[in-house]
Nucleic acid binder design. Structure first.
Lengths: 230, 230
DNA sequence: AATTATTAATCATTTGATTAAATAAATTGA
DNA sequence: TCAATTTATTTAATCAAATGATTAATAATT
């Protein structure tokens, strides 16, 4: 597999296989998926799974490499901008109310981006794969964590730390960052419960607006309260 | 299966199989588990899976019946008490600060109970099974939802609604309730990420105390902020 | 011509389920 | 009470289908 020399069409074949694999691994899980259905959906021969990826497991890992790269690509423009915003923040007096407002805006931007990421039809399958790895980590988890996950956490920790006037390494900052993500993540990880409890049929544009609205209120209330509390 | 007449040992055998199944389904997922290992772990013959439960799927459903019953049993004392507290709340003036404090206490009690539920070694496996159902609901999900899940949501909605001076059916109440649960649920559903981000080795007593402490602060800050905002 | 990619056919295991026989427990009748 | 009988439970052996992987032949690309 992964030979140095390759034909022109090879990349296409591999991509077709990875896309099929995302769909089927996402739907059925690693064990529930089988190579024949995988190959059929990709429109290629069964033996190509072993030929290109060394087997089912290799294909599974390739899927996570692909997803990590895609998420990075998708978040890059936003995170580049926010890095700049954060830089300008660090030179500002912490008691400046304007600066607090700005850090709040950065937090909101990141959380809204995460909401969008959770919601898109395409990424919905990614999140399923990621959730599976969170419960039973395989070597694929490292690919994810060293990629987009730690990136998002690091980025979000900074404005939270600034707002709470603490070091990003402070446990309170870390926990609060996780709590913020949790408020959103619940809509994917407890998807079925959310649908039942709200009476929604699906989580589409209208529902996302409601969620964003609520999250916006929550973030302001939570951080304002926390920064007063201690 | 499930014959009307049964011998004395039958209940023990079934329970041994269910307990083994919880462990193995939780670890490997429905598809990843296989009947031979299941039977071996339970210390019974392979054919008993079909005999007692009609097959692998029947055993899987029986697992969820068992879990739902266990969670109910475990939360019953607390919820009975809180129902009473809620009843006394409903007769009180909403502007009474004491009443607000009390509703906050009820919320905290429920969330702390949920944290404990997430944390126990035994229940950890249950949550894994529940999470799997959230992603790809099978008939087992209905067993869960009609049982402990909707119960917890209904119960938690009431003090939240009281505090926010809204109807429990109001979407803001529903979303806030879910957000509160999400803040906690993240510690299980993103378990591996939490461990990496915090540097924890495991989530045990010490870590649970930190989480509770933070959640306590969050709930106060969040609800106070929200009830002022609107 | 040589290398790389793809295919059809096949192999060896695994797996869920079934069957028929054996064992254990409950029930019956004296 | 206690053997005889019925019923329920458990076991070992086996089946048929599914599955991941491999092989040898063919096609495409360089």
């Amino acid at each position: 597999m992964n030979s140095i020399k390759s034909h022109k069409k090879t990349a296409n074949t591999r991509l077709a296989m990875i896309n099929a694999a995302i769909e089927i691994f996402g739907r059925d899980g690693y064990h529930g998926a089988n190579n024949r259905e995988l190959a059929k959906k990709a429109g290629v021969n069964l033996a190509l799974i072993s030929y290109h990826f060394g087997g089912k497991e290799g294909l599974y890992l390739a899927v996570f490499e692909h997803i990590a790269a895609q998420i990075k690509l998708r978040l890059e423009p936003l995170t580049a901008q926010l890095q700049l915003d954060l830089l300008s923040l660090s030179n500002v007096d912490v008691d400046d109310n304007n600066a607090k407002d700005q850090s709040l805006k950065i937090i909101e931007s990141l959380l809204f981006a995460y909401i969008e990421l959770l919601a898109t039809e395409q990424t919905a399958v990614w999140i399923k794969l990621i959730l599976a790895e969170q419960q039973a980590p395989s070597p694929a988890f490292a690919i994810l964590y060293r990629g987009p996950i730690s990136h998002l956490l690091q980025l979000l920790s900074q404005p939270v730390a600034f707002y709470l006037q603490k070091n990003p390494d402070h446990m309170m900052v870390k926990l609060t960052t996780l709590n913020l993500i949790g408020q959103i993540q619940i809509f994917r990880s407890f998807r079925q419960t959310v649908l039942q409890h709200t009476g929604w049929q699906d989580i589409k544009a209208d529902e996302l607006d409601l969620i964003k609205q609520q999250i916006s209120l929550n973030v302001q209330a939570l951080l304002a309260g926390l920064s007063i509390a201690k």
